[in-house]
Write a protein that binds this DNA or RNA. Structure first.
Lengths: 181, 181
DNA sequence: GTTGCCATGTAAATGGTTACATGATTGG
DNA sequence: CCAATCATGTAACCATTTACATGGCAAC
């Protein structure tokens, strides 16, 4: 049995375990895959991945094998039985999933009352533009159509959808705020 | 001129400055107001607020006055001219606002391919339930109708809207994932 | 031959959360 | 007088980001 419960897995460990299960076996490949596919809703930085990989190996959740390319060292990581069970436990965990946002546009809008009316509209305008840029980038990603599987694609569609919703909200809010003066 | 540029304000400083401008003058009141009104999109913890208040005072952005209630010490914080300018600079800043998400349900869905089909639906089901709970809480808040101003209310309506969107997305995704088996 | 990518790692700094600790005031 | 809330603060810990450092490989 895996002695590691879902809440003991830190944020980096969760995404790393999943990526290894999907067949991304080197630290570098895991990093690249996170950048490509989960960055927008679950980031992790290089500086955290390599130490985490060693911690997971020490905990017996992954195995390491040297797998050099020529003279260049390279490590191949695979899930152990315990690692696979820990991953399954986390994916099937019943406790409330983390859902957090840091939304600076909204915080600014929250404080818009202390500004001149003319400056208020600019806040929601910049909010709309931000989402417009994200939408364009996500549409390009979806057009390129390079996905690991259906679920990878669905996650990107979610990101696109939420940005579209936020853009539309900002557009409507711009009207409301303009009338408010 | 304020020597403090928007990017030099840390996350706690941004919300604290705004709260003081709105008239929440003690560390305790600021904390309570963050919990009530920005927690869902911009959190800050007690342990960060008091030290930050002293840093802001040292930087000359806020003034402190002792304002005891009986024998109980209490500090009253107000924006200085420089603090007010720094706040305005941040609110009107043209650079891209921060917009980040940590979405564990989505990360799990991203890895659903490694699970049995029967377990996949459960992931989106738990996602839907999470948003259902958030929606109920936010609707209660809106019914209670205790807001500082229009913008405070709008921010809460945003939070409600995004949770409704996410709930509907999860409901649709549950169908898609169920068919996928 | 040199640019860019594959690949791994460390150290320092940053930023934030949690828990602990204390004590006064207010209302029942 | 007791509980809840107002009010302030510190210390330890945790996680993560950034910057730095290194070197081979592949392609042009």
């Amino acid at each position: 049995m895996p002695a590691v419960t879902p809440d003991e897995l830190n944020q980096t460990a969760r995404v790393v375990l999943g990526m290894i299960a999907e067949g991304h076996t080197t630290g570098y490949a895991i990093k690249a895959e996170i950048e490509r596919s989960t960055r927008l809703f679950w980031g992790a930085s290089v500086g955290g991945i390599y130490p985490e990989l060693r911690r997971l190996a020490a905990a017996g959740l992954v195995s390491v094998r040297d797998d050099p390319r020529g003279a260049a060292r390279r490590h191949c990581y695979l899930l152990t039985q315990a690692g696979r069970e820990t991953l399954d436990d986390w994916l099937n965990d019943e406790s409330e999933p983390l859902f957090e946002m840091r939304n600076e546009s909204l915080l600014r809008l929250r404080f818009a009352g202390v500004l001149d009316p003319s400056e208020r509209v600019a806040i929601v305008e910049r909010m709309r533009e931000l989402h417009e840029r994200r939408i364009a980038a996500l549409e390009a990603t979806l057009d390129a159509d390079e996905f690991d599987d259906v679920f990878d694609r669905m996650a990107t569609e979610y990101a696109l959808g939420i940005n579209r919703w936020a853009r539309d909200w900002a557009a409507a809010a711009a009207h409301e705020v303009a009338v408010e003066r």
